[in-house]
């Protein structure tokens, strides 16, 4: 279970999050929406313990956590397959498994390419493959389906939905259709929190 209690974050003069609480049980799926710059990524970073809130508490009982960041964040010195394998055993044992995930995301032909040889949208899909591969208990995705055309997005959404199982999902998106496709309860930003 992920439990964010009365989280407040301010950057300089700007109160981004104001006593914002959010609970995520096993298998629960929630989408955060709101205008650009409102604080969606900030809340995700707090949930991932990457940012210490000014006040409030974070407790996370999930052991395996995966994230699709707003940027692909691939290791430039590893190939696509190696980047996925990195979060598996990171050894020869799971290379095939890593390739299979890339295949599911329609990157079968690109598994030996380096990130610099992939387009932005392809890198994003490698990053999604990397997040789904370890079968996380908590998956945080920050605008994961941008830079994809309609048809591809639908297929990637389906792969994601199939892979989720009973993982808890915290999805950030500008597109409520994506949220519904993944079975998320949609929360909207209002006055420093998501309701």
């Amino acid at each position: 279970m992920l439990n964010l209690k009365e989280i407040s974050v301010r950057f300089g003069e700007k109160q981004v999050l104001d006593k914002c609480s959010l609970r995520l049980e096993k298998g629960e799926r929630v989408a955060l929406t709101g205008p650009s710059g409102c604080g969606k990524t900030t809340l995700a970073r707090v949930a991932l313990s990457l940012h210490n809130p000014d006040s409030g508490t974070v407790s996370c009982g999930f052991a395996r956590i995966a994230a699709v960041f707003q940027e692909p964040r691939l290791l430039p010195w590893l190939t696509a397959a190696e980047n996925v394998n990195l979060v598996l055993s990171d050894s020869a044992r799971t290379v095939e498994e890593a390739r299979a995930w890339l295949e599911r995301l329609e990157l079968g032909d690109s598994s030996t390419l380096y990130p610099s040889e992939l387009s932005g949208g392809m890198q994003q899909r490698v990053s999604i493959a990397r997040a789904l591969a370890p079968g996380p208990e908590l998956l945080v995705m920050d605008e994961p389906f941008k830079a994809m055309d309609e048809a591809l997005r639908d297929r990637v959404l389906r792969v994601t939905a199939d892979a989720l199982g009973d993982a808890a999902l915290l999805l950030i998106t500008h597109n409520e259709r994506e949220a519904y496709a993944l079975g998320c309860r949609v929360l909207r930003y209002r006055d420093g929190c998501f309701v």
Binding site: L50, A67, R73, L75, V87
Partner: peptide, 24 residues
């Protein structure tokens, strides 16, 4: 620093972070 955050989220052991991110 974004890659170090990645390592932290995916709970890389110290040696793995060193070998895969720091050293390269």
């Amino acid at each position: 620093p974004q890659l170090l955050e990645l390592a932290s989220v995916y709970r890389f052991p110290r040696m793995k972070t060193f070998r895969r991110i720091v050293w390269p």
